[in-house]
Design a protein around this nucleic acid. Structure first.
Length: 526
RNA sequence: GCCCCCAUCGUCUAGUGGCCCAGGACGCCUGCCUCUCACGUAGGUAACAGGGGUUCGAAUCCCCUUGGGGGCGCCA
């Protein structure tokens, strides 16, 4: 039946590498499916047999997932997670992950939003296979399918205007009835059509029985067909509705597994009716619970939902973001820290949870700290540099960049975001004389300044400028002066960094380098 | 209003009938480490929504209630 579907206009093909890996995907994947299916009852078995059939050499079974956002705003956290899950699953089974921009709503779609989504996915490191499909460009094919359904008797013309429909809905609401289309055109002949009204094409949906969706996350979900009405497939202006477009595109793109938000669960019923009407194979559905805000309310643009770009600006690392999003609704035992590499190995749809979760910035921040600490020093310095340059309002000099690189090991223990890291790193990137904070200045009065002066002399006499030598010299001075480490260390820190908090002193001096460190001490001892 | 989904610490979750007077992580509190701040480390706080069943035995299975969420467009 897949073959029959090949009448579609050419779609951009998937990447060659993905096609090459198709055979590896077949066997183990089947077993995984058996596990990930909600029950071992008849439907599951039937589905497994269908999968067997598709291992036919001409149409090797290949998993195809997709992410299909509509470009009406930025890529928010929920969309990002949906994309991540689709991406992970495709990579896990050696399948294909595709991107489709659902821009059929011409009034609300913008190129800026499309760009924001693309940028967000790239930043998150979710690469997709093949070319991006723009749904609007396929409108003619959607209309073609609507007319094919008309020809098969699975659809009909309906002549109500939007205003009439609106009144019908209001009447139903007032009468306490469920809101469904119950117009006369399902049975009436088109020749009775009122003049001047452009018709829509509606699906002739079954009125008896029930529609069942075998959802990989929610299990078997069924609804009585009398609850579902005859939805519009093609608008009066000849453009397709979402419900039609998704089905046609998913079919034409050979999508086998649809992982998407819970809010689409009821759509799945209607969509499977379209699949059935066209005689197309129904893909597997996995409806994942939505992410809510910290207060439990739906995450929306005006309710704490930020675009992925905002998290980037707040100094979160893509790897941390992926890990956090992964743990929102998916788990592998009780492990929290899971690298993307491991996630690709472990990700199973069967392990997706069924209950909604809340977005917790504190936990994301903690995870980000973990990834910062684990990051490579040079890579981290490069990632932090734009944040530092922005705070300084200038680019770093080569010398400052070197100090930053040498100081990174200590810096990264103390930061949970790149913004914090940049703040903490600022003193390495200042030129003498460095600005001194009030609290630090207070430490450089009287006794403090004397300590610094004595220390400067001792350090200046050192042959080797390294942490061990500096520490030995300092301990020696402390002993001679009959002081305590605590009394001497803070003034020294103030002189070196202009702050009261910093990485370890010897590390700071080593990273600063002899000339810079001694210079700063001299500045403070003046 | 009708339909669908969900329900373990404040949050993310482990748990698929006995190993659980419920484990981990974040947060919060306390101690230790210590030149500051962190990191690390030792501990503490805190949950099976309620009610009925089934069973020798229920966080786990069933039903009801309550609560939360989603959908019901010529939006996607």
């Amino acid at each position: 039946m897949r073959a029959a579907a090949r009448t579609a206009p050419a779609l951009p093909s998937s990447s060659a590498s993905a096609a090459d890996s198709a055979d590896i995907a077949s066997r183990p994947t089947l077993q995984r499916y058996a596990r990930s299916l909600p029950s071992l009852e008849t439907p599951a078995k039937t589905r497994q047999i269908e999968n067997e059939a598709r291992t036919d050499a001409r149409f090797p079974m290949k998993i195809v997932t997709r992410f299909a956002p509509s470009p009406t705003g930025f890529l928010h956290i929920g969309g990002a997670r949906t994309a991540l899950f689709n991406w992970l699953y495709a990579r896990h089974v050696g399948g294909v992950f595709r991107l489709r921009i659902e821009d059929t709503d011409r009034a609300r779609s913008t190129p800026e939003a499309t760009q924001a989504i693309l940028d967000g996915l790239k930043w998150l490191g979710l690469d997709w296979d093949g070319e991006t499909v723009f749904q609007f460009s396929r409108a003619a094919r959607h209309a073609e399918v609507a007319h094919a359904m008309l020809a098969k008797g699975h659809a009909y013309y309906a002549y109500e205007t939007p205003e009439v429909l609106q009144r019908m809905r209001e009447a139903q609401k007032a009468a306490g009835k469920s809101i469904r289309y119950e117009g006369p055109w399902r049975e009436r002949d088109a020749k009775d059509a009122p003049p001047g009204v452009k018709p829509v094409i509606r699906l002739k949906a079954p009125t008896a029985g029930e529609t069942v969706v075998e959802d990989l996350v929610q299990g078997t979900v069924r609804v009585a067909n009398e609850q579902l009405d005859d939805m519009v497939l093609l608008r009066a202006d000849g453009t397709p509705t979402y419900m039609l477009s998704v089905v046609v595109d998913d079919h034409d793109m050979d999508v086998t597994d649809i992982i998407r938000g819970d809010d689409h669960l009821t759509n799945a019923f209607r969509q499977s009716q379209i699949y059935k009407a066209m005689g197309w194979e129904i893909p597997r559905f996995a409806h994942i619970p939505l992410i809510h805000g910290a207060d439990g309310a739906k995450l929306s643009k005006r309710h704490g939902a930020l675009g992925v770009a905002e998290y980037r600006k707040m100094g979160f690392l893509p790897a941390a973001m992926r890990n956090y999003l992964l743990r929102l609704g998916w788990g592998h035992g009780d492990v929290d820290i899971i690298s993307t590499e491991d996630a690709v190995k472990l990700f199973e749809i069967a392990d997706i949870g069924r209950s909604p979760s809340r977005f917790d910035l504190a936990k994301l921040t903690n995870m980000n700290g973990h990834y910062i600490r684990a990051a490579d020093d040079a890579a981290l310095a490069a990632a932090a540099e734009p944040f530092i340059a922005e705070k300084l309002d200038r680019a770093l000099t080569p010398a400052q960049r070197e100090r930053l690189g040498r100081g990174m090991a200590g810096l990264k223990q103390r930061a949970k975001t790149l913004v914090e890291l940049a703040d903490a790193a600022l003193f390495y990137c200042r030129e003498r004389p460095i600005p001194v904070a009030d609290k630090a200045r207070a430490l450089l009065d009287g006794a403090g300044r004397e300590h610094v002066g004595a220390l400067a002399a001792a350090f200046g006499a050192l042959g080797d400028w390294n942490e061990a030598a500096l520490e030995a010299a300092m301990r020696d001075q402390i002993e001679r002066r009959g002081a305590k480490m605590g009394d001497v260390a803070q003034p020294l820190r103030a002189a070196l960094t202009g702050q009261t908090q910093s990485p370890g002193l010897f590390e700071v001096m080593a990273a600063l380098g002899r000339d810079e460190a001694l210079g700063r001490l001299a500045d403070a001892a003046k």
